[in-house]
Design a protein around this nucleic acid. Structure first.
Length: 218
DNA sequence: CACCAGGCAAGTA
DNA sequence: TACTTGCATGGT
């Protein structure tokens, strides 16, 4: 919690995820895979301009057309297929009813999402937390890098191990997990890139280990 | 110019 | 099981 407070003091509330609807969160979660959010915004805006930011419209559009719309987000052929797989899953499993989806128990829901082609652990958990408001902690590249550089995890720690570290030490609160992950990303973007610029980082000195020299490979 | 970004699946050993 | 590689655009 101390790390959380230090980041919060530095950045304030982040108001994540930047999207208007749960469906838009899910689309963004796929499009942002290994991609800068600014590129994702352009892609989502193209879909919106086509009036296709609904389950019905996305279900009826061809992967080729979808790929053209999402071109700015990179990996567009790959992601068009992944979006289609997600849309098909939502349609087939819940009849496109996201309210019904939200009633499914979290472990089962997570298992279902991981079975969708193109949805891995981070994307699944982003959907659970930011689209469905479920208390699931999201682990991303910044989370791993920050914890690793502060010697709080082994560099080779698995996704599940990192996730458990948070969830076993925090109250089970979706709003807290939401804000915490958002703060980690903001801290990561500002101070903990691959080429580190640690000066001014709100986490400097945390756990005794202060930054720059001898940073292990991520 | 080189490097990086809110991953994932498929292939190889 | 544990690495490695392909996927692609746009900003710094």
């Amino acid at each position: 919690m101390r790390a959380y407070q230090q980041m919060f003091v530095c950045f304030g509330p982040r108001h994540w995820w930047p999207a208007d609807t749960p469906l838009e969160v899910m689309v963004g979660a796929v499009l942002t895979q290994n991609t800068a959010w600014t590129n994702v915004e352009k892609a989502i805006e193209n879909i919106r301009a086509a009036g296709a930011l609904t389950l019905e419209a996305l279900a009826n559009i061809s992967v080729e057309t979808l790929a053209e719309w999402i071109r700015p987000s990179g990996y567009y052929n790959l992601k068009a297929k992944r979006l289609k797989a997600l849309i098909l899953f939502l349609h087939d499993t819940y009849g496109g009813d996201l309210k019904k989806m939200a009633q499914t128990p979290i472990p089962l829901l997570r298992k279902h999402l991981l079975n969708v082609h193109g949805i891995g652990e981070e994307t699944a958990d982003s959907i659970l937390l930011y689209a469905l408001d479920k208390p699931v902690f999201v682990v991303d590249a910044y989370t791993r890098r920050i914890l690793s550089r502060h010697r709080m995890i082994e560099p080779k720690a698995t996704y599940g191990e990192i996730q458990r570290l948070f969830m076993e030490h925090l109250p089970e609160d979706a709003a807290l997990f939401n804000e915490y992950h958002a703060l980690i990303v903001e801290t990561g973007k500002t101070f903990c890139r691959k080429t580190p610029r640690c000066a001014g980082c709100p986490l400097a000195g945390l756990n005794g280990a202060n930054v720059a020299p001898n940073i292990p490979p991520d």
